[in-house]
Amino acid sequence: MNTLTGMPRDKKDEVDRKFVEALARGLDILRAFNPGDGFLGNQEIAQRTGLAKSSISRLTYTLTSLGYLTYSKRLEKYQLGAGVLALGYAFVSNLAIRQVANPLMKELSIATGTSVGLADRDRLDMIYVDHCAPKDIVTFKKEIGDKIPMANTASGRAYLVALSQEERDFFMGHFKEKFGDKFEAIKAGVDQALENYEKFGYCYSWGDWEPDTTAIAVPLKLSQGQIYVLNAGGPAFRLSQEFLSGEVAPQLKSMVRNIEATLIRF
């Protein structure tokens, strides 16, 4: 898959003919809501999506009628409705990789004292589809649906190294456009990740995303071409680079191989 929408690039002309602009705009509105947002008004949605307020008014009305948004007359704002939850639950509950990976993730989390996550790509971010953390860790817990950036995290780098050069160049082009002066540092991190993965079989981020966070990650490739990422990490003050590289990385790589072997039967 070579585009941010997941469409194969060689079908660009076909996509252009079949692309439904109104549907895309409606989905962009749903994507405008982040965890913890609560209610958003049309003006806020317009700022986040770049859509005209006149278009947003029609689309939010339609999405509310279908149950994907709810409307507060008092606040004159919208929040996500139960229809979105139903879609998300259907996706997560039917995800075979999550059913296979979760027990192994819990085992690794307990054995190493790390937070262990399973992530998929969402545009230029990585989104958690599962996460396990020791009970005594309160600062590095993630929820299903939480996002982290692809550009400078261990998970994002692990996803990028699993791509072909053409696919990776596509994302690097978007990073260059988005990050401007910060792009060279991002590119250096990805180049280093390619070397690390070839040599050691995993990628890392030693405070590159958040200064007090260390993490390692390994890509997981399914036979259908889908790429997921498994990561392990946590607060830097309790998880040293040496511990993650020497103790956790071999176990994380072994877990990925076991999951890949199991999912061949699905």
Rank of each mutant, 00 (worst) to 15 (best):
K106T: 11
A111D: 09
D181S: 13
Q192T: 09
R9V: 11
A232F: 05
P134C: 10
I148V: 14
L66Y: 07
K135G: 03
E242L: 09
W206G: 06
R123C: 06
L108C: 12
Q226K: 10
Q224I: 05
P103Y: 13
G26Y: 06
G156H: 02
F200Q: 02
A101V: 11
K18N: 09
T62P: 06
D28K: 12
S245F: 00
V190Q: 04
A162M: 02
V256Q: 08
Q165L: 04
L244W: 02
A162H: 00
Y204C: 05
V161I: 14
A249S: 15
E14S: 08
V138H: 13
S54D: 07
N258V: 09
A151N: 05
Y228N: 04
G180M: 05
N258T: 13
S93I: 07
T114Y: 01
R58V: 00
K221M: 01
L239C: 07
L51W: 10
V190M: 13
G83E: 08
G38A: 09
S205D: 10
V248P: 10
F91C: 06
S109Q: 10
N231Q: 07
L95W: 09
K182H: 02
S205T: 06
A151M: 07
R31G: 08
G117A: 04
F39N: 12
Q226S: 13
A111C: 01
E21K: 14
N42P: 01
L30C: 03
C132L: 09
F39P: 02
K106D: 13
A22H: 10
I148P: 05
F243P: 01
R58E: 05
L59T: 01
K53E: 14
K199A: 11
T139G: 09
K176N: 14
S65G: 07
R238D: 07
P134V: 07
L194E: 15
L75K: 15
Y159S: 04
F179V: 03
I227G: 04
K253A: 10
A52V: 06
D181H: 04
N231R: 09
N196I: 07
A101G: 12
P103L: 13
L80N: 01
C203A: 13
A185C: 08
Y89I: 07
K182S: 10
S240A: 11
Y228V: 01
R58D: 10
G81V: 05
K253G: 11
D120H: 05
T3I: 03
F140H: 13
Q251T: 09
G246D: 13
N258P: 02
Q79D: 03
T262G: 04
W206D: 10
I227R: 01
G67N: 08
K11W: 04
I186N: 07
V15M: 10
K73G: 12
T64N: 12
A52H: 14
L244P: 05
K182C: 03
F237T: 13
S54A: 14
M150P: 05
A111F: 04
E210P: 00
V256H: 01
S254Q: 14
L51C: 07
L194K: 05
L63P: 05
Q47A: 13
R25S: 11
G38T: 10
G173M: 01
